[in-house]
Design a protein around this nucleic acid. Structure first.
Lengths: 187, 187
DNA sequence: CACACCTACTCAACAAATTGAGTATCCCAT
DNA sequence: ATGGGATACTCAATTTGTTGAGTAGGTGTG
């Protein structure tokens, strides 16, 4: 149900094709509403049928044609209505690694170390990507200036959330590695 | 696919009924693998059929009978094998509130404030519950002592993750509220 | 000049998650 | 004495999410 609004929110940034959205959902929105390309195409179809978005086909020369989608007034309306509704479920984190950590006693600690290290470097990479998005948003201004001047601060606040989340993730990994290291000194 | 292992991991704590598990999945495991009671009952059925857990029916006097499930050796084996496998997808955070924040420009800032405040007090509540679980685990010992003595540290490390996650959540809410407050001074 | 990867999707099948109702007993407070 | 909540589930329908294959031209790399 919420993917619908995630897509509408993504289209606030302007016209986009399904393919472009699938990229966006991989970098910025991926932080709080992951979706596969297939889900997006299906959702776009539905939204277009419901008149919340409009499609126009763009003929292209040396690549397949694409359909660009734009928010309609109706879509914009539904989105702002949604944004004012009370939130039903709060954060839901689904993390396979944490299941493995929960069940780690009884497995080789070195294997667990490796899993945590992999996660840590992944989180660092994501953090770096977020920081780049941040720099592009700020565009030389300080955060203060940006928040005063910008007409849309929503995307900045969610990005801030993503950055906070991933750096906490990295810190957690570091702590876990420290603890594992104390338990099983490197031989 | 992972719910299976989440359930097996939960049963490491000992025998439990579906009903009891649905409580556990609401407090501790909810942090990294949410599941509804219906999902759990179905999963338990499947796991019992596959011989990974065993059920025994306990007759009760003044309440409905219950089925208590225990890990079998096969179940324990599958779980430890899983715990050593590389993790496919990393963290996926799904947060409806962040969609609303992303789309907040164009809605009444006071409404957004209220949404964030609600989330903050919810996160504080969750944090308090985690802290209580932590105190019960530590049982008077310091973290150092616990980590040296305890034979299972997995649950402590995941709990640490939950605490880190929720306190970061609270901090994010505070920052957002501060920014909203500057933009829209309370009249 | 072969091979992999990028754009830009569609189709189909399946697995997992959500929602809502239904059953039946007991305890506690108003 | 009546209503609400807790225990302890089951059944069914629907919506979401995932996986894998297929199409088809274009670009870049060794």
């Amino acid at each position: 149900m919420s993917l619908k609004y995630a897509v509408l929110a993504a289209l606030l940034e302007g016209e986009a094709s399904g393919y472009e959205l699938s990229k966006v959902f991989d970098v910025s929105l991926a932080n709080f509403w992951p979706a596969t390309p297939q889900q997006l195409y299906r959702e776009l179809e539905r939204l277009a049928q419901d008149g919340l978005i409009e499609a126009r086909v763009v003929q292209q020369e040396r690549r397949p044609n694409k359909r660009l989608f734009t928010l309609t007034d109706a879509g914009r309306g539904e989105l702002t209505a949604f944004a004012a509704e009370p939130t039903r479920r709060p954060t839901a984190l689904r993390d396979e690694l944490l299941i493995k950590i929960q069940a780690m006693d009884g497995t080789d600690p070195e294997v667990t170390r490796a899993l945590v290290e992999e996660r840590m470097s992944w989180a660092r990479g994501k953090l770096a990507r977020y920081e780049r998005v941040r720099d592009r948003l700020l565009d030389g201004r300080t955060e203060e200036e940006y928040l005063r001047e910008a007409d849309r601060i929503g995307p900045y606040l969610t990005l801030m959330g993503g950055i906070a989340f991933e750096s906490e993730n990295v810190r957690w990994c570091e702590r876990v590695l420290a603890i594992l290291g104390r338990r099983v000194p490197l031989s």
